[in-house]
Design a protein around this nucleic acid. Structure first.
Lengths: 329, 329
DNA sequence: CGAAAGGCGTGTAACGTTTCACGCCGCAGA
DNA sequence: TCTGCGGCGTGAAACGTTACACGCCTTTCG
């Protein structure tokens, strides 16, 4: 005799409704079934509290309706917001989200890939740094901010355009001595183009500029000595700074304040990302805002596209400027 | 003939290694197998790039090594941090995380429960508001901050103690006219005890206090008129305010500033949660800090406990006070 | 009125694992 | 040398679905 505690299966429903197994299956897959049969099955299912077993279904159909999201972390509000929007976009399509965090560690990234492959996800959205991540080419993959081989689509903000926009804004707001600050992993990604766009605009306008780049995230403090070295009579050699991230901007702003400089009167700062404080919703700084919602929606859309023969290899989404108090406007 | 593109199965590995199917299974489950057999199988698996199909395994064993986390959202940094820690605690145990977001909507919460039941997760960690969520009692469930029936364990911070601590601190810092502000869903949860603790401490010390409670999150602005009504000659009737969340504290602080009051000189504020700004890591306000890491670890530990016969019905984790600039110390 | 066609319920064979009964072989004890 | 036992490899059944071939019954048209 069946255990009382076992969760009911289609077989149980079929027996309860007095129909064949195949009929029950058809009901739950919305295939043509006579109306009276359908009702009988649905009622029997309700009586028994039947729930589809998606593991059995996934095994049979090779479709799991699940997507994995691989992120460095979600303490970073930009990533958190991205995850939030992706989760919603997936839920709207009846997909579920498997979340994997890597702390930017290449080993962890590779383990995540292995995990999701074993879990037969229908696709992966990944924001990774491993230079040569090994992923089964049959697994639909959308990369955020990093180009792999041309076959796997990469979705990113228009970093180049954002860099240009930052330079343009600073110049419009009266800056004459521009500085670009960048920090981050040595792995080349799309976000490098922020600096390229910035430089390109400056060159085009014949405006001199300086670039300082640090590779180790901990070395953020080393910018302090750089700034100190460029102080003269209580004035900084630069009056407009573009930082590659809002994160960096916040730290630089603090350093500048420590040096006795007023923002935005003495120096104007523009960041990149568009992170907002939770409670008040305010920007931490003037910034180039990434369209997080569209980023998320685009990833999901491309990932779940039926026809996977003609995928774009790179999609750039438009960014915008927003004043957050570290510029004059 | 087998399709070239199909992912290899145990059968393929068995054939490649020249052993029986059962032997391959034993190798991957670390059951006793002769050393030479083991090597043959492992090599064959490597050659073929074999990966366990966790759907087949899950179907057979009724164990999926996955846990669902149901949260209102992860834009709230407190939830994000919680999710982050839970994800790590699960990964350390080789479990994967299915993330479901509800926007605090009871309907969405119920749908999430249904989804996770169909996905045969091994357990659920839920932070929900639905007053009578229907969840299969056989499904291991740990609730955060809300008591269901006594059978399902609830993990929360020591809200009562935190409320007491807030009152104690405000009094120690010289406050004489205390106010408690609260906003939130009408569903009773553990976090209601913040106010209880606060009131209890005040009564015990014979200190008069005022309580204002609003139920709708949008009504946060209604506190403004309350504060205005309690202004007299540029001074507020209260000099110490305990807000039920950091979120609320930030908004109240802004309103007070609008009224021309200095913080902490004129009014001192204490919040609850311990949210930190991303870039700088600073607290938004003085606050009672919830032990997010321990909260997460505890949830996972209890959820994955082998022996589920003697589960605690409520676990309170200790909180601490931290100055974040809205108190004198 | 009869035959062909089409709609739909039925039963069964997979999907890729785990698990268990079975049997082989080698070894130890008498 | 013979019996018994234990270790371990083998093959098949089962997990809960889906999908397909099959055949019944009704309908329609000449």
């Amino acid at each position: 005799m069946k255990q009382k505690g076992n969760t009911p299966t289609m077989k149980d429903v079929a027996q309860e409704a007095g129909v064949a197994l195949g009929t029950v299956s058809k009901v739950f897959n919305n295939l043509p079934v006579g109306e009276s049969y359908r009702r009988r099955v649905e009622e029997a299912a309700r009586r028994l509290g039947y729930q589809v077993n998606s593991y059995a279904r996934g095994l049979k159909t090779n479709k799991t309706c699940s997507v994995a999201l691989i992120l460095p972390d979600i303490a970073n509000p930009f990533f958190a917001s991205l995850a939030q929007h992706i989760c919603q976009a997936l839920a709207a399509r009846d997909y579920k989200l498997i979340l994997a965090l890597t702390a930017s560690d290449p080993g962890a990234e590779q383990r995540c890939i292995q995990m999701v492959q074993q879990n037969k996800v229908d696709g992966v959205i990944g924001l990774t740094y491993h230079p040569e991540l090994e992923v089964d080419p049959r697994l639909p993959y959308v990369s955020i901010d990093r180009k792999f081989n041309p076959g796997t689509p990469c979705v990113s903000s228009d970093n180049f355009g954002g860099g240009q926009l930052a330079a343009q804004k600073l110049l419009e707001l009266g800056c004459e001595h521009l500085l670009f600050l960048r920090i981050g992993s040595p792995v080349p990604g799309e976000s490098d183009k922020r600096g390229d766009g910035f430089e390109s605009y400056c060159r085009q306008k014949n405006v001199p500029y300086t670039v300082v780049r640090k590779y180790d995230r901990e070395g953020i403090e080393s910018f302090r000595s750089f700034l100190e070295a460029h102080m003269e009579n209580g004035r900084l050699d630069f009056d407009g700074i573009f930082c590659a991230t809002d994160f960096l901007t916040c730290h630089i702003a603090e350093m500048l304040a420590d040096l006795g400089l007023r923002i935005p009167e003495d120096v104007q700062l523009i960041g990149f990302d568009g992170i907002r404080a939770f409670a008040t919703g305010q920007l931490y700084c003037s910034t180039i805002v990434q369209p997080v919602g569209r980023l998320a929606e685009t990833c999901v859309e491309i990932l779940l596209q039926e026809d996977r023969s003609n995928l774009p290899s790179l999609i750039c989404l438009p960014v915008s400027y927003a004043c957050g108090g570290t510029t004059k406007e």
